[in-house]
Design a protein around this nucleic acid. Structure first.
Length: 851
RNA sequence: GCCCGAGUGGCGGAAUGGUAGACGCAGCGGAUUCAAAAUCCGUCGCCGCAAGGCAUGCGAGUUCGAGUCUCGCCUCGGGCACCA
């Protein structure tokens, strides 16, 4: 066997796999299937370490399952619509389509050398009409099923560029390009009725046993089911039509702590008051800035006293002022609240700022009613003493108090208990070119008319320009102006395109029949769905995964997926992110400029660009294109090979944890592989009749390695599987066993390592007489008899501190163990004659002597 | 601001409530070499000559026993509905 040279063996084995069509997914009803999917990438043009880590994890699972006899589906595609393509067109010219396809070709060329066991014949890109045309067909079906509607919603409006901005494009309340102060503006937009499924999406989380608990918790909080009281305040001095003000509260037990009512600046009452210039000015002030919750909730809390009053439902003589407040969201509850500063920190801050009364409704058990320095917000499950209660016991939990208050309101008739969800309908309209066109036409007589299915796909026109801001579809007459599909009169196409989250909400289903002329094919979807193992970043914990869960339900409702696929991902693994330091300088206008790690020279004293410019080093954060803190895996593959890169990303860190990328260690991974190669060579040169003393020990070590590596892979503890492989390699290297046992051990090592380092595994496998491709060989099984040790070492603690240890046969009876422990020399020394109070023996684990 | 995580040697990390630091990196010592690289062997939490003591972000608590469970903090990261 010659020197370990990945540049020779890797292409060779990749070719061998291709020839054998080793990774083609075959629908074979006689075998169990296994569908493993990694979140598909945005085609930025360069793969980064996060990709390598993500796809290697999926590949390890796919290869292991294939070896275990499953019919495996392991596809790959491209989440190809989105803003960066348009930004590139604006910044550098060119066309989003060409840019995207070029990037796909580049990225694919970078992924291929990794030797992933992907069925490339199923490759798809969401920007291809073959894909998005089927998405349009489903949109029409969903429209017919009542899952699509239009309504007004706020967007970030750049008043200089006269265009809608993404939240990402709003920096400190200003447009990223124009620098103009952004405002919130309403547009009529398209929505999916995800709220029809709020209850179901929440309830079904309990069934997702193989999802991380934290993801289920995040989704549950996002859906935000709450039980509260809805009631109407009677108004005093309000304009006609506003005789009452509906409010919703999850804390009706604090009603007697109310000190004001507050409405959203977008509330109809606020609009009605805008005739007053002072109100108009205040509301305009509230609308300044972006639409993101983060921006709204961290903005300074401001209010405006309308002069209108409302009567307290429990005491008509008690009037509360009505304020307009910028932190009340129109799309949660009724857009109006009552403020209880005693038990809500936001209300407390507001009341303090505007001199409104602050009274406690309840106090901690045993405490006295007193002035509050901050809002008192105990857990609802905690018992408190109601000093201004009006329903239920004087001492009760918050939950009991809420229930009693709702019962009180319903009995007296001033309000009713309602269940609300925080989850809002999914706004899918984007005023952008590079997305899936919404297939409807606006007709002056017929109104909104769906495009005919036979006219799909509604293809994006190629002849567009990005020299001015805004959506090029809006100013493309030959594409935009079409006859109405219903009456034939002159009409206009919808120029909004779909949110790219729509594209990624069903690609997993499309992979089961990627070339079909319908969105899915029943037989294929029936066989392959669900995804048995989905792998991706934790940053997708809420939006992508929740939208996909909804979309699968919508696809089932419209006949595109079987009932069993409404939860499309049976098991989910969220990998940690690959992080890296960020390098920043500032341009002449004070704007930040980011630099690629490869352009930065790092030294002990800091960092500089190659020309010597000092660079600010910002602590590690998620690798992102905008911050340019990305590392190119290609140079590692070029100098050490794919197996080294794959081994390194799997060994470096537990997969669910973030990993800080450092270049140290890649070399070590390579050294290890070279050592394995040399070991294989040495065993290959052993005389066939060599007899060693260590056969039994090596057989045991082999069984142990099979057991540990298999458990490690199946439990997504790849770093531990790799630790076992290191240990096993060392054991083989030091073993003195007979030639056949040595060969058996190294072949097993090759198989166990093949999911991580498939190329070197094939070389070892074939060199040591393995039959066929290692990738096609059945996964080794450990002989259970070899996994059991006859003796165990038991540590002895005295008062919880380890003082001694004894070796005993594994099934020794407890009284006998106690006897040995108490006569142990070291134990006697530490006991120093003190009487033993208690002795605890945990069989096979530990002995603790208590004095 | 709200929701969710994570913090263990110089570094990445391991540890069904049961020997804290497996495995790897870096370091240190040695072998080999004319020399170096590569390779191999050994050593390696901190304090201490040792006995021993101290150690899992900080502070309490539960337990025979806590990195692990509970409560309260601190720091860092993710998400917050138009980044993907």
């Amino acid at each position: 066997m010659s020197r370990y040279d990945p540049s020779v063996i890797e292409p060779r084995w990749q070719e061998a796999w291709d020839e054998a069509q080793a990774f083609a997914a075959v629908r074979d009803p006689s075998r169990p299937k296994y569908y493993v999917l990694e979140m598909f990438p945005y085609p930025s043009g360069r793969i980064h370490m996060g990709h390598v880590r993500n796809y290697t994890m999926g590949d390890v699972v796919a290869r292991t399952k294939a070896a275990q006899g499953y019919s495996v589906l392991h596809p790959m595609g491209w989440d190809a619509f989105g803003m960066p393509a348009e930004n590139a067109a604006m910044e550098r010219g060119g066309h989003p389509k060409d840019w995207t396809h070029g990037n796909i070709a580049d990225m694919k060329a970078q992924m291929k050398p990794l030797g992933l066991s992907i069925d490339w014949s199923r490759e798809l890109a969401t920007c291809d009409p073959e894909y998005y045309g089927q998405q349009q067909a489903m949109f029409l079906d969903m429209m017919e099923a009542g899952l699509v509607y239009r309504k007004a919603a706020v967007v970030n409006w750049d008043p200089v560029d006269m265009t809608v901005l993404a939240n990402e494009q709003v920096i400190d309340g200003k447009g990223w390009r124009s620098g103009a102060a952004v405002e919130r503006r309403e547009l009529v937009q398209w929505f999916f009725k995800i709220s029809d499924y709020s209850e179901e999406l929440l309830a079904a989380l309990d069934g997702l046993k193989d999802w991380p608990e934290k993801v289920r918790l995040m989704q549950a909080n996002w859906i935000g089911k709450s039980r509260g009281l809805q009631f109407a305040f009677e108004t005093v001095g309000a304009p006609a039509g506003f005789e009452s003000l509906e409010v919703y509260t999850t804390r009706p037990d604090t009603l007697l702590g109310a000190s004001f009512a507050a409405i959203s600046p977008d509330h109809p009452l606020a609009r009605a008051l805008e005739g007053d210039p002072a109100v108009a000015e205040f509301v305009a002030k509230c609308r300044r800035g972006g639409t993101s919750a983060e921006e709204i909730e961290t903005a300074e809390k401001i209010g405006y006293d309308t002069g209108i009053r409302v009567r307290h439902p429990l005491d008509p003589a008690w009037e509360l002022p009505v304020w307009i407040a910028n932190f009340i969201l129109m799309d949660y509850g009724t857009g109006a609240i009552f403020g209880c500063p005693g038990h809500d920190q936001r209300d407390f801050d507001f009341a303090t700022k505007y001199g409104l009364p602050i009274k406690a409704v309840f106090v901690a058990e045993g405490a006295e009613d007193a002035a509050l320095a901050e809002a008192f917000v105990p857990m609802k499950s905690e018992k408190v003493h109601y000093v201004r209660g009006f329903a239920g016991a004087e001492v009760q939990t918050g939950d009991e108090g809420v229930a009693a208050a709702i019962a009180h309101a319903e009995a007296k008739g001033y309000g009713k208990g309602v269940t609300k969800f925080r989850l809002r309908d999914w706004g899918i309209s984007r005023q952008r070119y590079w997305g899936c066109p919404i297939p409807v036409v606006h007709c002056p007589t017929c109104g909104v008319v769906p495009e005919k299915k036979e006219n799909l796909p509604v293809e994006l026109p190629y002849d567009v320009s990005f020299d001015k801001p805004g959506n090029p579809l809006d100013r493309h007459p030959t594409w935009r102006d079409v006859p109405c599909p219903a009456c034939g009169a002159a009409a206009k196409r919808e120029t909004d395109t779909m949110d790219t989250f729509v594209d990624s909400s069903w690609y997993y289903a499309r992979f089961t029949a990627p070339r079909a002329t319908t969105p899915t094919v029943a037989a294929e979807a029936d066989y392959w769905m669900n995804v048995d193992q989905y792998i991706g970043g934790i940053e997708h914990a809420i939006l992508h995964l929740l939208y996909s869960r909804f979309f699968a339900r919508a696809m089932h409702k419209t006949g595109h997926l079987p009932a069993k696929a409404v939860e499309p991902f049976s098991a989910l693994f969220t990998q940690g992110m690959v992080t890296h330091e960020i390098y920043k300088t500032t341009d002449t206008q004070g704007r930040p400029v980011y630099h690629l790690p490869e352009d930065v020279v790092r030294s002990e004293s800091g960092a500089t660009l190659k020309d010597g410019t000092r660079v600010e080093v910002i602590p590690s954060a998620k690798m992102s294109k905008s911050k340019k803190n990305v590392v190119d895996p290609m140079h590692i593959i070029a100098s050490f090979g794919a197996d080294t890169a794959r081994w390194f990303v799997m060994s470096d860190s537990p997969p669910e944890r973030d990993v800080e990328w450092t270049s140290a260690g890649a070399e070590a991974a390579h050294k290890h592989l070279a050592r394995v190669w040399a070991l294989c060579s040495r065993i290959g040169e052993m005389p066939a009749d060599h007899v060693g003393q260590g056969d039994d020990a090596l057989r045991r070590a082999t069984a142990k390695a099979i057991d540990e590596v298999t458990k490690g892979i199946e439990g997504f503890a790849f770093n531990k599987a790799i630790a076992s492989l290191y240990a096993f390699t060392n054991t083989i290297a030091k073993a003195n066993a007979s030639t056949p046992v040595m060969k058996e051990a190294i072949r097993t090592l090759a198989q166990l390592t093949s999911p991580m380092t498939p190329h070197i595994a094939e070389s070892i496998w074939s060199y040591q007489g393995g039959e066929g491709l290692c990738a096609k060989a059945p996964w080794p099984k450990a002989d259970p008899a070899l996994l059991i040790d006859d003796t165990v070492v038991l540590p002895i603690q005295i008062n919880g501190k380890r003082r001694a240890e004894i070796g005993v046969p594994k099934d020794m009876a407890i009284p006998e163990i106690e006897k040995i422990a108490l006569t142990n020399e070291d134990v006697l020394k530490f006991l120093a004659g003190q009487p033993v109070k208690k002795i605890i023996v945990v069989p096979g684990r530990i002995i603790n002597v208590v004095v």
